[in-house]
Amino acid sequence: MEKMQVRFERCKGCGLCVSACPKKLVVIQKEKRNEKGYFTAVCSDQDACISCMMCAMMCPDCAIKIEK
């Protein structure tokens, strides 16, 4: 169950969510680029995520959906 879901094609790899996460869980994965050529954000530990939504609030592209 994914509390923090990143829409792969919507993310522009800007990294604002990375700095916003209080638990420092969000990272920019470097394996795969999306259609626009960006490396995208991903939550490195879904269990540790507390669904605080701060990453989503900082995201300029509504690329992050949070579940709790």
Partner: peptide, 30 residues
């Protein structure tokens, strides 16, 4: 598990032309 944060309905579900990290995207959502 319930969705607690998602794109607002008033915001069209399209990708924007704004540069990565541009503040416009945040204000549009607000």
């Amino acid at each position: 598990m319930a969705v607690v944060f998602d794109r607002p309905n008033s915001l069209e579900d399209v990708s924007t032309h704004f540069c990565p990290g541009c503040g416009h995207g945040i204000v549009h959502r607000l």
